[in-house]
Design a protein around this nucleic acid. Structure first.
Lengths: 254, 254
DNA sequence: CATAAACCTTTACGTAACGTCAATGTCAAT
DNA sequence: ATTGACATTGACGTTACGTAAAGGTTTATG
């Protein structure tokens, strides 16, 4: 199937100006130009436009999108998986916002009180998202393939049950950690429970366990922006808090 | 509690430039200016900023936001209820996008085909949103309460409808599954129909769908005695049969 | 066959919501 | 007393298009 600008624009729900602009900045060029100078798009361009729109939906600026989709190592399928991960993240952020608005409604009715900080929960995420959009591409380029390969290899070796178990653990870590963070005490029972869950989770992936390795990973959560972003996505400072808790758990000096 | 620009900015996760701009365009003026010309914000401004940020999150432009929040008939509590409605809408749209990306992944793996139109499902909504943002404020001012009431009714109706739909699906799964079990063939059309119904049912509850999740649940039906008991209550072996059918449906190896 | 409607083209200026200097003043703490 | 972190007001820059102008092409219709 071939499309002119307007046809493709209507299909995708964007303006023809947008497509011309995308051509201008070299992010989406038509398959060919016909004898009258009209832009003609075909299958590959339809799929690429979809990819671009996923990135845009997730708030990435066109410059970044361009550097990703024009990269020779761009893998559409991997990108789709990444889109899905980001969309799910976005949905949990939306849930935080919805919880926020719920509490705000309750507050106006005097059914509860909110601190000023709580009034902006779920919005702050934006900053992190933008940060990810800015540095994410670069980080992917740095660690990308290596990390992907590694995790894929592990994944193949795991049975589905193991996979489920690890997912369950990861989930429990997240919720326990969120609760522990509220207490503010990395030595407290909740934080130590989170650390222990994290040990279990790690043992899954490594097949073995060592206190040194555990502490090392914990430190990495603070040093490596990718992990920091992941753990801090709900509450900034969570990565650091987890590291502190794990240091105490492993008996490491902080 | 009183805030300077920077303090309030950090609290809300925006830049101080943004707050100065909001002052400039008259959308959020500080409570007062101190003797050195500093902007000082207090409680009312914190709450108003939250409102503004909800509108912004939903894609409304500042001009519209201004005309709403500066209107003498602006009702913060009503606005919060409206925010919630819009956020929930936004979430269902996100779910459409997630379903889209799921199908797109399946398509790249050759597990299904997609029309070009389907590739942009969930994006198109944007246009409607923007349209709503443009003319919504005006319409609300004109029809305000009536529209709100209507949408509230729709929400209530929707949830009941959804509830009914899921019950209907569950019922259909049970009968189809019973018939399919008679055939003894988990790859047959009846069993596959049951698997598909089960997918629909699952999508209802999860808001999204993934093969892995589907297969995981299927395995759980066999592993967890509570579920096994439920599905086997009529015919022992039904849980296992359903799992096999779903594994075939999702293309999983049994 | 003409002609209007509905496309397409490039060029170019406009806009929203800030980001980012620059030049300057204020405040708290060492 | 000075340093560093804050504040102020301009003012120009940027992104991702919108919008209009001036014109060529295609297609449907009288």
């Amino acid at each position: 199937m071939e499309y002119t600008v307007h046809k493709l624009a209507r299909l995708a729900g964007v303006s023809s100006r947008t497509l011309r602009y995308y051509d201008e900045i070299g992010i989406l060029k038509p398959a060919r130009i016909n004898s009258s100078g009209y832009r003609i798009y075909s299958q590959a361009e339809v799929d690429l436009l979809q990819q671009i729109m996923f990135y845009r939906e997730l708030g990435m600026d066109l410059n970044n999108v361009k550097s990703i989709v024009t990269s020779p190592s761009f893998d559409p399928t991997q990108a789709l998986l990444e889109h899905k991960r980001r969309l799910l993240e976005r949905r949990t952020q939306l849930d935080v916002l919805i919880a926020n608005v719920d509490r705000s409604i309750a507050a106006t009715e005097g059914r509860c009180t909110m601190t000023d900080k709580e009034k902006f929960e779920g919005f702050v995420q934006q900053m992190i998202d933008e940060n990810e959009a800015k540095y994410g591409a670069e980080a992917r380029q740095k660690y990308g393939d290596e990390a992907v390969d590694q995790s894929n290899a592990r994944l193949k070796g795991m049975t589905k049950e193991q996979h489920d178990e690890s997912a369950r653990l990861a989930n429990e870590i997240e919720t326990t950690l969120a609760l522990a963070f509220e207490t503010g005490d990395p030595a407290g029972p909740l934080a130590q429970k989170a650390a222990d869950l994290h040990r279990q989770w790690l043992t899954f992936w490594w097949g073995s366990y060592s206190k040194e390795g555990h502490a090392g990973v914990a430190q990495m959560y603070v040093d490596d922006e990718r992990f920091t972003a992941y753990y801090d996505k709900r509450q900034p400072g969570t990565a650091r808090f987890l590291r502190d808790a794990i240091f105490i758990y492993t008996g490491q000096k902080a």
